[in-house]
Design a binder for these strands. Structure first.
Lengths: 221, 221
DNA sequence: TGAATTGATTTTGTATACAAACGGGGGATC
DNA sequence: GATCCCCCGTTTGTATACAAAATCAATTCA
């Protein structure tokens, strides 16, 4: 959990455990660490110039989040899911996202509205430019904006965790430029339902949006 | 001395960290450890006859689950929520439960059906007997049966965690005997919607069920 | 030749120690 | 009498060491 804030001079206030966890997360997201790959405590300890203790803490945290899995006496690995499992994880994620959309539709503030619209504008821009990397980032921001708009940090937390967890499997889901435009249009439909404060429609819209993107993710993995 | 003390011959594989975490969970659920109460590493270490290391691991796991919170350099405490926060936690929980009901309605197997019916039978029995403790247990089993019936371990995991997390605040929610009957009747309505495989109705039914019980919980806390 | 035993290595869990950072209390200063 | 500062205890994070259990390999025995 977040310890404290910033660094002053030489030494960071963030613990080594956090730093390592963050670094590993990034490497996993970036695909440098592939699903199924082994992570050994001692090796990581040497690599980061620390002892096993903070490494263990980082690993156990990521394991609790489902990013890593513990093999039976054979070390810790980057989580690797079968198609079946992946499908179930995405199902859970879709339900959470739909719940978020539902709540947002019920409790929509002006600020959230602006934030969501801004994020969507970014998405459209990136989609029209055909910039895949930019779209990935903008899409992330769009969904995060919705999580925040729920006004419910607990819901937001779960949704974020799922997003993180599925990151490695969603990264390659946007094949061509038309897929970006499709996604952006799907966002717009969702926004319309949310802004009209129809919670049932918003929930369904989100589920539809997620489903289409999921199908592409499955094809890619 | 490491982990020798427990196993005489066979394999007792649970670690001290797990044992301590479990023990703490039970004490919290039982209300022996009240929200806001401090847990000090060294004290627990002595109490369980171990060193700080496994205690730390147990505490950090429970902290990650939101059961405990880390005070600012003043130790770890049993999570204590304001009415506001409690309200949001329950909202999140309700959405998860609703999602489960929705999924179950879409994918209902015979086995799950039987299990849910059996759990509900127990609930009715306890409610009619006016046995509050038995009803609490039966109610737990009923909801767990629904989680399992989703066929989605990831959804189940989240739902279970929320149930655990809110345990201390739900324990006293059933005031009188008529409240038990009310809850059991609410279950029945939910079951009807699930069994008719109407996912939207099931989801709404669950939300209604949870809302009524939540209101009672809020009154109690 | 195949199976079982055993020894070594790895992995995991725990103990203990140490260092840094924060908070509070007591004393000094005005 | 109030305020400020310094010191000290507590808490937290990390390092290192050790012990048990499990895996792997090799060797031995049937």
């Amino acid at each position: 959990m977040p310890r404290s804030s910033v660094s002053s001079t030489g030494h960071n206030r963030i613990s080594a455990a956090q730093r390592i966890g963050q670094a590993l997360l990034e490497e996993i997201s970036a695909g440098e660490l592939r699903p199924g790959q082994r992570l050994e405590e001692i090796g990581l300890a040497h690599r980061f110039g620390v002892s096993r203790t903070p490494v263990r803490e980082a690993l156990s945290r990521l394991t609790a989040q489902g990013i890593l899995v513990q093999g039976e006496r054979r070390g810790v690995f980057v989580a690797q899911y079968t198609r079946e499992e992946l499908s179930l994880i995405f199902e859970a994620m879709h339900e959470i996202e739909a719940a978020c959309a539902r709540v947002v539709a019920q409790r929509l503030g002006l600020l959230s509205r602006t934030e969501i619209e801004a994020a969507q504008a970014e998405c459209v821009k990136a989609a029209e430019a055909g910039d895949r990397t930019a779209y990935l980032r903008a899409n992330e921001a769009f969904h995060m904006a919705i999580y925040r708009a729920t006004g419910n940090p607990y819901l937001r937390e779960i949704a974020s965790e799922f997003r993180q967890r599925t990151g490695p499997f969603r990264a390659k889901k946007f094949d061509g430029p038309e897929s970006l435009l499709l996604s952006a249009r799907s966002h717009q439909a969702l926004i319309n339902d949310i802004f009209s404060e129809d919670s049932a429609a918003a929930s369904k819209s989100m589920r539809d949006h997620m489903t289409t993107s999921f199908i592409q993710a499955l094809k890619a993995n």
